[in-house]
Amino acid sequence: MDQKNKVRSGLIFGIVTSLFFILQNLLTRDDLSTQNLIIIIASSLFGGALAGFLFGWLIGLFANSKFLKNGTNIDTASNETIVFSTGANHFQGVEGVGGKLYLTNKRLIFKSHNFNIQNHEFSINLSDVDEVHRYSTYGIINNGLSVTTSGNVIEKFAVQEPEEWMFQLKEKNSLQSVEQ
């Protein structure tokens, strides 16, 4: 996980935590004088900033750990080379299974890490991919990658560096793209 993603994750977590602290204090306090309101907002912002910093730091440690990296290594054929890879989630029902997505010169491969309920390795031959497009995961975050196969099966991923994934899949492999 790069510095930009750690900071973004920390900021989002910190802002949500600050808002939660403010709302929780406003709903549970009886004495909402101006002084108490300032204390509530200041302490909530401080607590949210601290929580966001710690969250970003811890998620960075987790994403870059040797245990995680070793658990998501893949085997390739002798005539197959890895072109591009990043951390990713593969959506299996309601679970976004965490792991790593690989693009080789022959396949798109996802391998989960061991901190999931649904551990799996998944592979699509590039010759079976009809279309790729971006979408917003959960309708908010524009990091989704949708892959449609020749069997009209749609596989969805949340990826780091979605623009680079689109470039690698569309430009380098001559796949169709539908921008949304």
Results as ranks from 00 to 15, higher is better:
residue 3 Q to R: 11
residue 4 K to Y: 05
residue 5 N to Q: 12
residue 6 K to D: 04
residue 11 L to I: 09
residue 11 L to W: 02
residue 12 I to G: 06
residue 12 I to Y: 07
residue 12 I to V: 15
residue 13 F to D: 07
residue 20 F to P: 09
residue 20 F to M: 10
residue 21 F to Y: 11
residue 21 F to H: 04
residue 22 I to N: 03
residue 23 L to I: 06
residue 24 Q to G: 05
residue 24 Q to W: 12
residue 28 T to H: 11
residue 30 D to R: 11
residue 40 I to Q: 02
residue 41 I to W: 03
residue 42 A to Q: 13
residue 47 G to L: 02
residue 47 G to N: 07
residue 48 G to F: 00
residue 51 A to G: 02
residue 54 L to C: 12
residue 56 G to E: 03
residue 57 W to D: 00
residue 58 L to N: 08
residue 59 I to N: 01
residue 60 G to L: 11
residue 67 F to V: 15
residue 67 F to G: 10
residue 69 K to W: 10
residue 73 N to R: 11
residue 75 D to H: 10
residue 76 T to K: 09
residue 80 E to V: 14
residue 84 F to R: 00
residue 86 T to P: 15
residue 88 A to Q: 12
residue 89 N to C: 09
residue 91 F to K: 14
residue 91 F to H: 13
residue 94 V to F: 15
residue 95 E to T: 02
residue 95 E to A: 04
residue 98 G to W: 06
residue 99 G to K: 14
residue 99 G to T: 15
residue 108 L to G: 11
residue 108 L to F: 13
residue 111 K to F: 11
residue 112 S to E: 09
residue 113 H to W: 14
residue 113 H to R: 15
residue 115 F to C: 15
residue 117 I to Y: 02
residue 118 Q to H: 14
residue 119 N to R: 07
residue 120 H to N: 15
residue 120 H to R: 13
residue 125 N to A: 12
residue 125 N to D: 12
residue 130 D to N: 14
residue 134 R to E: 06
residue 135 Y to E: 08
residue 137 T to K: 04
residue 137 T to E: 07
residue 139 G to T: 10
residue 141 I to K: 06
residue 141 I to Y: 08
residue 141 I to W: 08
residue 141 I to S: 06
residue 142 N to Q: 01
residue 144 G to K: 01
residue 145 L to P: 04
residue 146 S to I: 00
residue 146 S to N: 02
residue 147 V to D: 00
residue 147 V to E: 00
residue 148 T to I: 07
residue 152 N to H: 03
residue 153 V to D: 09
residue 153 V to S: 12
residue 154 I to Y: 01
residue 154 I to P: 04
residue 154 I to V: 12
residue 154 I to S: 13
residue 158 A to P: 12
residue 158 A to Q: 12
residue 167 F to N: 04
residue 168 Q to A: 08
residue 171 E to Y: 05
residue 172 K to M: 03
residue 173 N to K: 09
residue 176 Q to D: 08
residue 176 Q to F: 12
residue 177 S to C: 02
residue 177 S to D: 03
residue 178 V to C: 07
residue 180 Q to M: 10
